[in-house]
Design a binder for these strands. Structure first.
Lengths: 109, 109
DNA sequence: GCTTCATATCAGGCTAGACTGATGTATACT
DNA sequence: AGTATACATCAGTCTAGCCTGATATGAAGC
């Protein structure tokens, strides 16, 4: 496996990692239906403020959400293209799994 | 957030977690094009045998792959429905992100 | 200007999980 | 039967990342 291959898989793995935490996935699900401010997310998830803030930071730094500050409040919105890229590659994988031939390569390393 | 909601997000998050490791994602990608035995995966990824075996176990226990033993060799095949379920929910999230209204809920907790 | 509220950051503890060397268990070959 | 090969499991180490209490920042309102 080349270094480039590792890096590509690594970057995408990191994006899947965004959805690999229950609370973070829940936040993404909530933001998928509407723009919300931090206080809503704290309220809806029942998690502590610092914990929600921690996960929002991770999503922010990965480019999965953008923020708009209005007065005291910070509104979070999902950036569609990150999720779209993941959805596309996942659909591709699922299609591949469906078609993956039953023929086996010779096995003599 | 109800306990049920947490559990649902938790289960799906665990599935996304399968793809959140670079090596494991690479293994899934390789299996998406054809059925392979462990020795191929070790060869293609360049990882140690125990490490590959570790990740295959995780994929196996999550139901993401099935195995066929042929003599000394163990062949691994992706089970499409796990990836399909993830692809579907991710597409749904991405669509939601696209349509997510700009209207903001009143913010007065 | 002082207080309050919304949110972010920091520092520390704790746990899950990734990697590895050693070892176990079949199966195949001679 | 004995050896070699393919693969799994075990035990231990180490790191990444989650959670939390304390604290900082910055806007609003009085």
């Amino acid at each position: 496996m080349t270094t480039a291959t590792i890096n590509i898989s690594g970057e995408r793995a990191a994006l899947f990692g965004l959805l690999a935490d229950p609370l973070r996935l829940r936040i993404v699900e909530l933001l998928a239906s509407e723009e919300l401010c931090t206080c809503h997310l704290i309220d809806e998830t029942g998690a502590k403020q610092t914990t929600v803030s921690h996960h929002l930071r991770i999503l922010r730094e990965a480019g999965a959400v953008t923020t708009t500050e209005v007065g005291k409040f910070t509104w979070y919105r999902l950036t569609p293209h990150v999720l779209e890229a993941l959805a596309a590659s996942l659909t591709e994988l699922a299609d591949g799994a469906e078609r993956a031939g039953r023929q086996r390569l010779p096995c003599a390393p």
